[in-house]
Design a protein around this nucleic acid. Structure first.
Lengths: 233, 233
DNA sequence: GAGTGGTCTAGACCACGAC
DNA sequence: TCGTGGTCTAGACCACTCG
């Protein structure tokens, strides 16, 4: 039990009232000042508690009109995106990495489109495989915008994955993640040692620096791979 | 440009110093008091700014030892889980729904395991299809724990999806999401009108109430479906 | 033991937005 | 206009944890 005059306590109490339908969906709840008075704490404390509930989507707040219980509480799942090496090591397995191919070529349309670059852009194309205890774990298909990361052209990616090098080298401003199921192609089948056409979970990440697009990567997971995460509600 | 003595301003400045390597990964940064003094604001303001950066994983804080720049900044993608009806309507399409099957049977091992229930538990098994502009959008394969939601046994799910009914009826305490790529089975192929074996993106949600497991659902998306989300870093 | 972050308070002013 | 949430301040005490 948390003390009721702490922000956690206030939050707990508000959650309870929402769960128990004491405050119904769409309904207005008391103002911060009133709640503070009722629960015997400062308004600041109530504000902190409610602010977090609002960012979690459980309530909706607007100046002047007040705070309402959300009508359609939308759950949220947070997916962590760690270094691949750490992801492998976290399972207790030994991590391995090998560069499969390297070329400086213009990007295919889908990559140019995802990053908002012209198809004539100079890009470095790398494919690499990540291993767990010597077995294929993940296939990485990466495109790096040489205009944004000129150092990549001369860097040696045989020892360290582009994943790690970029993270250390380039300041990242924003990114986008796309998750999809795709049939394994011929090249992926060979690299991962699975049958062509097998359904594979793919993650695509587009990354932008402060000014220019930096990199686009498609990760092919092994068959059966699952992304698991708790849902905050 | 945000005023430097607001919490957003402080956060911006700290982010800048980390991006510019002025404060390097693993390095200790000044104490809240020092920063407040330097930036000309109250310690409370600095605290708020740093608290959010810590929960975003950009810095690591410990009492007494201080605040460090995280060594391995792990990106995070937040996936929203709305009502399926709202998800469809958000695309501008007309939403449709049809119940395909209904039975009260013991769960298969994978469902029992996911919820931590015995395989002898009484469960309601529903399959339903969600439509966008009359075309298949999503196949729902749901198991409901009748011990936790007795009302489900007599409820009519032909008009309203279990998705919506449960959300309105049962208080949810926590949940888990698993994303995977699976080959389309015979039943799914018929319901979604796609070829058997086609790679489909599946979402599995397990949901618990305050005391007991409530429901397990597997959602089969149409071929090519992507989950897209910004990455916070 | 002492330094650091974590939190609460009481008061104040501001910004948005419904009326 | 004016009520509501959003934020800043200065000060205080506490809790954790390192040396």
């Amino acid at each position: 039990m948390t003390a009721p005059n702490t922000w956690q306590g206030v939050q707990e109490e508000v959650r309870r009232r929402i769960r128990s339908r004491e405050w119904k969906p769409g309904e207005l709840i008391p103002t911060e000042t009133d709640l503070a008075c009722e629960l015997g704490c400062a308004r600041t404390t109530v504000n902190r508690a409610l602010r977090e509930l609002a960012s979690a989507g459980l309530i909706e707040r607007r100046r002047k009109s007040g705070t309402r219980v959300a009508r359609h509480p939308t759950g949220r799942a947070v997916i962590e995106i760690p270094l691949i090496r750490r992801e492998v090591e976290a399972t207790g397995a030994r991590y391995g990495y090998a560069l499969l191919s390297r070329a400086t070529t213009p990007p295919p349309a889908r990559v140019a489109y995802a990053l908002g670059l012209p198809e004539t852009a100079r890009m470095l194309h790398l494919t690499a495989i990540h291993l767990a205890d010597g077995a294929p774990y993940l296939l990485e298909d990466r495109w790096i915008n040489l205009a944004a990361v000129p150092g990549a052209e001369t860097h040696d990616f045989t020892a360290q994955s582009a994943n790690e090098w970029l993270l250390e080298t380039v300041p990242v401003a924003r990114g986008e993640l796309a998750i999809a199921a795709r049939p394994c192609g011929k090249a992926e089948a060979r690299a991962l040692d699975v049958a062509e056409g097998t359904p594979l979970l793919t993650l695509e990440r587009s990354t932008w620096g402060p000014e220019a697009p930096v990199t686009f990567v498609r990760l092919w997971h092994m068959p059966g791979h699952r992304i698991v995460s708790p849902i905050a509600g």
